[in-house]
Design a protein around this nucleic acid. Structure first.
Length: 124
DNA sequence: GGTGTGACAATGG
DNA sequence: GCCATTGCCACAC
C-alpha cells in the first residue's frame, strides 16, 4: 500500500528535494547544550534570511522526524517560546530549556542575548 | 495550478 | 516604542 502521498515530508532525510528542511534540522542539532538560536539566524545561515517562516515550518516537521531535533532551543528573535504550543505539552519546551540551565520566565528566555548561538559565526 | 497559511523578520508610520 | 504592512519560500487543499 503506497499511501505516502501527503506523507512525503515525514522523513527529513528523504527530503533532499529542497534540502531546506535537512539543513534546518542539521543546524538545529548543532545547537550546543544550554544555548539557543533564532529562526532568523538559521534562515540566514541557510541563505534565506527573509524566509525565517520556513524555519518555523521546518520545526513543525520535527514532530514527525525520527531523529531528535532540539526545537526547544529554537525561538524567535525575541527569545520568546512561540513554538511551545506545538510541543507535546507547553511545559515541555520550557522544562527542557530550564533543564539545560536556560532561565525561562513567562515563556521568555532570560539573557537571550548571552545564550544566543549564531550558526553563521559558531558553525562554520 | 492558484490560493491560503505558517513555531518569523524587517521596515514604516 | 508599538501597531500595521510587506516579504519570503515551501507545503496543503
Amino acid at each position: 500500500m503506497k499511501k505516502k502521498l501527503s506523507n512525503k515530508i515525514q522523513d527529513p532525510l528523504l527530503d533532499i528535494k529542497t534540502g531546506f528542511f535537512e539543513k534546518v534540522f542539521e543546524v538545529a542539532r548543532q545547537v550546543p547544550y544550554g544555548r539557543v538560536t533564532s529562526y532568523g539566524a538559521i534562515a540566514k545561515f541557510l541563505g534565506s534570511s527573509q524566509s525565517a517562516r520556513m524555519v518555523g515550518w521546518a520545526m513543525n516537521q520535527t514532530h514527525g522526524c525520527k531523529s531528535f531535533v532540539p526545537a526547544h532551543r529554537v525561538v524567535n528573535r525575541l527569545g520568546l517560546l512561540t513554538g511551545k504550543h506545538h510541543f507535546a505539552t507547553e511545559n515541555e519546551m520550557e522544562e527542557l530549556l530550564k533543564n539545560e540551565g536556560v532561565e525561562v520566565v513567562n515563556d521568555k528566555i532570560i539573557d537571550f542575548n548571552k545564550l544566543f548561538w549564531d550558526p553563521c559565526k559558531e558553525l562554520i
